[in-house]
């Protein structure tokens, strides 16, 4: 399965850019977030907070833009294909994903020898990529609940009350970051397990042709 080609149609330039923005913002958010959680060296708190807030606004705008673009930009329907379709159709589960959740789990647990038939992304991948959307917004929501200028807005204060106060909100926000860290670990691992061709296309926009593995 890994031997297929990686064409630019899979990730048009605009999505290469949004992916870069996501990556940079995520790294900045996680780093500054860790620092705000527990300042592990001196002299950086003001910068860390500024970085956190800027990256937060950028990633939220970027994500919202990415969702809007999913309805206007066309991407490849299949791995190694130049055939394109509106992106949202390839982002949401495709017909090839039906009934493939358990076979995919079994494949990765070495309980199934053959690689399961997959759409542009496998069933697990689609779930993960779709879950990052509400998770990012949830991080923004919990963050705004802790952020001085917005914490007393009814929309956020209601959520803070619901979870039992700002300390609990802080812990949820903290665990949310770990969900993203774990997501990123698995994402980077699975994307590159067969070859680094996926990284070449998503970061450098360089195509890789089909190989004879």
């Amino acid at each position: 399965m890994a031997a297929h080609a990686h064409y630019r149609e899979a990730h048009p330039l605009v999505f290469v850019i949004t992916h870069w923005i996501n990556l940079v913002c995520m790294v900045m958010l996680a780093f500054s977030g860790f620092y705000i959680h527990y300042p592990f060296f001196d002299g950086f708190m003001g910068v860390a907070r500024g970085m956190h807030f800027v990256a937060m606004f950028v990633i939220i705008i970027n994500l919202t833009l990415r969702i809007i673009l999913a309805f206007t930009v066309k991407t490849a329907t299949q791995l190694g294909s130049r055939e394109v379709e509106t992106d949202i159709k390839n982002w949401l589960p495709q017909k090839e994903n039906r009934h493939q959740f358990w076979p995919t789990v079994k494949y990765y647990l070495f309980l199934k020898k053959e690689s399961p038939i997959s759409a542009k992304y496998g069933s697990l991948q689609k779930i993960a990529y779709l879950a990052t959307v509400p998770l990012t917004y949830l991080m923004a929501y919990t963050g705004f609940g802790l952020y001085g200028p917005t914490a007393d807005w009814g929309f956020f204060a209601g959520g803070v009350d619901m979870v039992g106060g700002p300390m609990n909100m802080r812990i949820i926000h903290y665990f949310g970051m770990w969900v993203f860290i774990i997501f990123t670990m698995i994402h980077a691992y699975l994307a590159n397990i067969y070859s680094f061709a996926p990284s070449r296309i998503i970061f450098a926009w360089k195509e890789t042709v089909e190989s004879e593995h």
């Binding site: 399965m1 890994a2 031997a3 039906r98 009934h99 493939q100 358990w102 076979p103 494949y107 990765y108 070495f110 199934k112 020898k113 053959e114 690689s115 399961p116 038939i117 997959s118 774990i182 670990m185 698995i186 691992y189 397990i193 067969y194 070859s195 593995h213």
Partner: peptide, 30 residues
């Protein structure tokens, strides 16, 4: 998770799935 991924990677290697990947099934199990 980090340890799990390392073990999984070794497993993928042992199962001969990297770098070529396992052959894709002809038909969905379902």
């Amino acid at each position: 998770v980090a340890a799990g991924l390392v073990v999984h990677g070794l497993g993928m290697k042992a199962a001969g799935r990297v770098p070529g990947g396992a052959p894709t099934e002809e038909m969905k199990e379902y």
